[in-house]
Design a protein around this nucleic acid. Sequence first.
DNA 1: TCTTAAATATGATTTTTATCATATTATAAT
DNA 2: ATTATAATATGATAAAAATCATATTTAAGA
Lengths: 143, 143
Amino acid sequence: MVSNSSKYAIKGVLFLALHSNEENKIAVKDISEPINVPQAYIAKLLQELSRENIISSTRGPKGGFYLSEENKNQPIINILKIIDGEKRLTSCMLSLEKCNEDKPCPLHKILSASRKEILKNFERKTINDLVFDMKKGNSFLPL
Amino acid sequence: MVSNSSKYAIKGVLFLALHSNEENKIAVKDISEPINVPQAYIAKLLQELSRENIISSTRGPKGGFYLSEENKNQPIINILKIIDGEKRLTSCMLSLEKCNEDKPCPLHKILSASRKEILKNFERKTINDLVFDMKKGNSFLPL
DNA sequence: TCTTAAATATGATTTTTATCATATTATAAT
DNA sequence: ATTATAATATGATAAAAATCATATTTAAGA
């Protein structure tokens, strides 16, 4: 449902959301360790997100990755859409092409309500929402 | 969350649940096509399930795989546990080792209710439950 | 304008997952 | 007993995902 890469990407973005801004960019080498993701790997993911304007970056000295206010007000799902693609999130639990509301597979009914709920949350929760949670001490980003 | 292999396994088991019983076993070669899974692949999966007594089998002429009544009364989760292992189903959405109810990761709260719901359904819905659904025409197993 | 520090682009390697192939073993029917 | 047909065990290959490496480009600061 959510790939490793997406998980890493979310960790990276949340780290940036907490510690960066327009005036305080962060280089890859300073991100990978605290979020416990190999440097070259998170680099690739952040580059991809940057290319798609999910996050911001500038190169050269004093450069790095950061999140603009606009970036922070995006829903989490934007990250997943870029890294995993739309399909992965919404496809049938049995991967049946023909499965849909009208002709549901046997697992569809059991799972669709919960899956919709998850989707809805990814769609409406913004990066900022999660940051608030963490700042209030309601959630944590260890390792 | 659920691997391809598990999806295939579920399809195979549901097919057996619909079309087999003690007196009417089904050979791998007659399963793979209707469920649209490569023969050698579904063979391996069914062998694994059989070894763990999730499904039944006998070899030799007139042999094949089938589901005993006992087999049919198992919850779906038994299949997932064997093929994917317990961890895959329950591990944190960000794969943080340290994430738990007391110290939840930022996604934990958003998702845990839905994930618990999914788990619960896998735990209580039996193979027979799904078969009933299909027989009543409420769900379908195409491809 | 030169140097340095950063992202970017690209592609190679490794690991995991998915897929395929086959020799062996068991069992029913002749 | 012999034969044919099925699962079983085992391992090989292929594809995809994860990970690593590096040459190129951009921008800041001296």
